[in-house]
Design a protein around this nucleic acid. Structure first.
Lengths: 226, 226
DNA sequence: AAGTATCGGTTGTATTTACAACAAGGATGA
DNA sequence: TCATCCTTGTTGTAAATACAACCGATACTT
């Protein structure tokens, strides 16, 4: 366990907690480390679950099988990231997804009930832990909300407009940079990359935006249709 | 304040807390009730904020102004519902949205920091409060995730398939009912209602689904393309 | 019972997109 | 330097959608 402490103090869930505090906190949380060879099942869909998982080493896939039994990758969880925390918080008893070791992986499990109900020995760190957990969940929430606000438009152009506005707001300046390649942008907006390029070109021709590589500028008339 | 207790004990944030406990908890949270006439600003975009709002009576609109100053309704918060809780959890200092009284409204404000940091007098209820807050946030999270998993497909047909699968899972049976009219369904999926109808008809012709009013059944071959 | 509103389905057309294929430019590495 | 890969933009075509308009059925009101 000790060898993973320096990983743990750097993950957001334990932000603001010192290394020596963390050690006692982990004991108090009854944290357990498990090792998985590549391809092994970390969490099986339908099986009972009551823990939050933290990937310490390697990476894992979150999978869901659909109506026809087709395997579907929902997400990839990497070193330092959490999984199943939403289900644990809701109190879902049986895992709705399967988690598979993508590579050889080390995972830390924490009983969720021990996170929310404060303990007697380490309450000071504990309330910080809860605050972190709330913050993490709220961030995820906001990111999802932003994504919906982009995807919830009919045309690629409208999606793109929402996306650009969002990132201008994030940056706080008008010529601003976005941390996406065209490919990643298209993936995020769930549209075809070449169609995205076309729409971008059209908007530049109409002089409502200007861009070079990842730098964009919104001009007068942006967002005004017809 | 007393007159609102019976509203409060029924909202999810205070689930599992008794009326007499609630009274002391509210004091401990420094909860404040405020009244607003119709049309008045409850929270102003850009102004400092550090409270979670709970609508006790009436309803409110969450607004956001875009690049061109166009007002945009993000959501409507009704009696018993929370707002600004995500921003409060993240620790955002200035409100990114405006909240407007839709009708004459009564709102309870709770200082967010008092929610996360446990107090000395009412810790038993307090940990329940935090658990509720986490649960609420996680639920919202899951709902958003479900929405993204529907919207994140290119064609109306694929969106519809994801939507139907989701509701079959929720129901747990195969002929299942959905709690949406066609209009609401189209709104949720962010597609045109008539186009949705057309796609539904096409899928019925292909005998991959069967439906009557709000009752749907997925047949063999559902989700198999080409 | 007539009038009205709402809902769901249909159709036609213009618009938009997906998809595939290709080309130009830059970056990387042998 | 050459070859290769990756990224981005372009084009053409087929497919899908948005939008508007209309219709029939149902429910509700007066």
């Amino acid at each position: 366990m000790k060898k993973y402490l320096e990983i743990l103090i750097n993950i957001p869930l334990f932000a603001g907690i010192q290394e020596n505090e963390l050690e006692s906190l982990l004991g108090c949380l009854n944290a357990q480390v498990r090792h998985y060879p590549k391809g092994e099942i970390i969490m099986l869909s339908g099986a009972p679950m009551n823990s939050v998982g933290i990937v310490l080493e390697g990476s894992a896939q979150i999978l869901k099988d659909d109506f026809n039994g087709n395997r579907n990758i929902l997400a990839r969880v990497k070193h330092g990231e959490l999984f199943a925390e939403v289900f644990a918080c809701i109190g879902i008893e049986h895992a709705p997804v399967t988690v598979l070791a993508d590579t050889r992986a080390v995972v830390l499990f924490i009983d969720f009930r021990r996170i929310v109900s404060s303990c007697t020995s380490a309450c000071a760190f504990h309330s910080r832990l809860i605050e972190n957990m709330l913050r993490l969940m709220a961030r995820k929430n906001m990111m999802l909300h932003e994504k919906v606000s982009c995807l919830g438009h009919r045309t690629t152009r409208e999606k793109l407009e929402a996306f650009l506005l969002l990132h201008m707001e994030h940056a706080g300046t008008n010529p601003f940079e976005i941390p996406f390649s065209r490919n990643e942008m298209a993936d995020y907006l769930c549209v075809d990359r070449s169609a995205l390029s076309t729409v971008l070109g059209k908007m530049r021709d109409e002089e409502v935006i200007q861009y070079h590589k990842n730098s964009f500028e919104l001009l007068d008339g942006f967002g005004v249709h017809k």
